[in-house]
Design a protein around this nucleic acid. Sequence first.
DNA 1: TAGGCATACTCGTATAGACGAGTGAGCAAG
DNA 2: CTTGCTCACTCGTCTATACGAGTATGCCTA
Lengths: 262, 262
Amino acid sequence: MAASPSGALGALDPTSDRAVFRQIADQIREAIDRGRFKEGDKLPSEAELVEHYGVSRMTVRNSLAILQTEGLVVSEHGRGVFVRPRPPVRRLASDRFARRHREQGKSAFIVEAEAAGSKSEVDSLEVGEERPSQDIAARLGSPRRVLVRRRRYLLDGRPVEFATSYLPLDLARNTPIAQPNPGPGGIYARLEELGHRLDHFDEEIKARMPTPQEVRTLRLASGVPVIHLVRTAYDTEGRAVEVCDTVMAADAYVLSYRLPAT
Amino acid sequence: MAASPSGALGALDPTSDRAVFRQIADQIREAIDRGRFKEGDKLPSEAELVEHYGVSRMTVRNSLAILQTEGLVVSEHGRGVFVRPRPPVRRLASDRFARRHREQGKSAFIVEAEAAGSKSEVDSLEVGEERPSQDIAARLGSPRRVLVRRRRYLLDGRPVEFATSYLPLDLARNTPIAQPNPGPGGIYARLEELGHRLDHFDEEIKARMPTPQEVRTLRLASGVPVIHLVRTAYDTEGRAVEVCDTVMAADAYVLSYRLPAT
DNA sequence: TAGGCATACTCGTATAGACGAGTGAGCAAG
DNA sequence: CTTGCTCACTCGTCTATACGAGTATGCCTA
């Protein structure tokens, strides 16, 4: 056996009723699972696969497309197709908004990232006033207008999360919350200083494929879903004081919650 | 304007540097977003799109493939391509394991589904003993062998969730937990009867694209990610008494958690 | 040595054609 | 009336070809 680039791959079964391009995808997938191709490795080029299997290029491309939508590989124009490396993962614990974490000067995101040894940035920070969407309005008790804070978070230069906060305007206007940098402890600290002592948060989590806009904003590889998290903050009076709508690159996150058994 | 099947679609921009198949995908996506094609509607057939845009069939198929991986449409062999209907959603609240919900005779899943007006089933229930994987062993305190309970949940005939529970064998062997039907209140009620009063649960949530095996088990349409949830149950002694590994069809679920602000 | 260029190799986009296979409607035979 | 067939229409699979565009390498020139 020559050490050909397709050495890790077998032959097609012509008697199988499984489509050829699926058989090829199966073989490559298995080779990846078995570690014959490791994270970041270059797969055999399309031309080599055409040669190895004796099929047309479109068939090979079809196989690779399957693996791409499964999130197993990424293709790079002019370079090749590579086993998708798994990025560093950010773990979000359910105590991440505990009051004791609200003391430091930097934002929670940056503090946490530095603790994990990653460099992080906050990006494209926009603050403004808007008419809320129906969904946001319903969650906030139907305010006519809301303060909106948008920002993007990057970890080691890679965008991982895009978040938008909405606050009732009567509550946030002309306060530090309406400033790009609201100061130490973030807007939750400011809300408590304004007399809105926080009682609890409700988080709703969905997962779905990203829109083209989200693919651009988060520079997502194909085959990577997003986690869509909507958090509503309530004060001790039971009033919803903030809604934060977050879209996260699913390959960069593990969410973690603790539930009481009572 | 004739009421042609492609009536909701415009023309290509030959001066654009955006690839033709992306332009076509953009137009169909926009037509869906604007409600020109509604849930369950049939899109124009490939032949009609070829006619309408004056491109080759592979180009049209490329466009439709994009929309499929985005989860916007599903194709049905011999019938056509349809706007993907959004299935009924199951909401999982963070109090779903509260002790007070553990009184009824039926499983929590069935009770909850019936309350929501859906018919539900539990399927392919397997109980056995195995050597745990490294990950499961680590979470359970490295038992040599574990009791395994596998089951699939269906909502209105559609599989939505596949769950596997692992319990240390010394704890579960020769108890009702090792029976296919563990009795009213499920295995958590039995654990408490056996003296393991539950203290809390830890849940870890990831989202990713399904493996081919998961696509089959959950009959997933392409473009639908899965939510992978691993729950560990701890008793009041701090011992991990169960790990439940759950893979859910992401389009069928919203997870909901309440976090204290303290 | 540094810069630029040619070149070969990579994947991306698009065409044209062929056959297979699942679906559903309508018609014909029993 | 039912069964079974044909047929038109649908998407699925596969081939063969062409050109474009991004990348890396090495060589040649200034």
